[in-house]
Write a protein that binds this DNA or RNA. Structure first.
Lengths: 221, 221
DNA sequence: ACCTGAACACCGTTCAAGT
DNA sequence: ACCTGAACACCGTTCAAGT
């Protein structure tokens, strides 16, 4: 937490390590982030990194938090539901820009980045009439849903070779769905038709809206 | 897909490898599953396993599918929503019994096990009045939510050392939440009071219900 | 206090060699 | 066709040694 001031501007620091890690992750994906390559990028020895950061888990958590903290600042609308929708979309876009974030968020829900999401969602749900338990449940539902999407996205990014055409990619998946056993997978075969034209972002938001509608309806009871 | 019939009952097979893998995963967790330990359990060489299964990813997927296929058979109630709730709880309980499933489901949503969940959810949503797009969105929302929970659970299992008392564990987390900065985390600090007494399973089902209510309400529009 | 880089203890995967 | 197990190419992490 405390930072010793360093004389030389080119000295190693948590900040610099995290930024280099993000650069590698963004460019070549999660599997490319190695203490050896990271050390090379920073022109230092691999052991030096351990003086500034505990281990790889901490490094990934710091990188995730570094980006999510920026993504979640501001973005406040007037009414709570609009704010929740705006935040959800912001998270979606951020994961889209940094696909490796998906695995981090869904796989380590107790790191600060995920906690921030939970807090912000819950904060918007804090209305006079709503019992605490309902708030807890609603915030959990929204977080689970968003973190679930994060996982899906991470998997998609892993699957999608860099630079592949998105439309071709979806066509490909739709074709695979069509090859499924009609008796066992009627629903997915029906949805395969819609898949290539569907918009992930819109569908994601539709899910948020379902939950928000549910929250609203539950209040009336 | 095709299996060559083997003479000797003690011969290696996909089935036997998968079952041994599940035994290791259940007993000692994901990090304990190694081709070396697996080979030792099966009294064979580590290379032999590759004759029956492509790689570790395929092994984990096969193990996940092996358990989820059993978990999802039957379990049909009369009306769709009751069936969805029953399925969701069944999935919850299965992940609870095999925590390593969580990481698999949330991290690899295109493996057969996750597709099965999506299919079954969608199948229940297939009602005359509902447009295809709404069905797609609803099934996605439910799947995302369930897979999101799976990730949370996997993380919890990783965090919870084997044999730790559950109540003490939740107390511990609540205490950590209370240590958060009151200005930045008011919601989580408020929820910390509820955390030790709260029931994961009930809360999970409450989220499913929010989505189901949302789906129902959206139909009326 | 901070950095170096060889060394350690692992991995998943391959493959020549066996039966 | 199936199995063996040494070997390969990696990892994250540690630590004596430097400055």
């Amino acid at each position: 937490m405390t930072k010793a001031p360093s004389r030389r501007g080119d000295a190693l620091s948590q900040e610099k390590i995290v930024e280099a890690a993000i650069a590698i992750l963004d460019k070549d994906g999660e599997s490319a982030l190695t203490f050896r390559t990271l050390a090379k990028h920073l022109a230092t020895g691999s052991g030096a990194i351990y003086w500034h950061i505990a281990d790889k888990t901490a490094l990934l958590a710091a990188a995730t938090d570094h980006i999510m903290a920026r993504a979640l600042t501001g973005a406040g609308a007037t009414d709570p539901h609009a704010t929740i929708r705006a935040m959800a979309l912001k998270i979606f876009d951020t994961i889209n820009a940094h696909p490796w974030l998906g695995a981090q968020l869904s796989g380590e829900p107790w790191q600060p980045a995920a906690m921030r999401i939970f807090e912000r969602m819950g904060h918007q749900l804090h209305a006079p009439g709503v019992p605490e338990e309902a708030q807890f449940n609603a915030a959990s539902a929204l977080s689970n849903y968003i973190l679930g999407l994060a996982g899906q996205y991470a998997a998609a990014a892993r699957r999608l070779p860099r630079g592949t055409d998105r439309v071709a990619f979806l066509d490909n998946i739709a074709a695979q769905w069509m090859k499924l056993d009609p008796a066992a997978y009627p629903f997915m075969r029906r949805m395969a038709v819609q898949l290539p034209a569907h918009d992930d972002r819109v569908q994601f938001l539709a899910g948020i809206d379902l939950i928000l509608i549910g929250i609203e309806a539950a209040k009336q009871t």
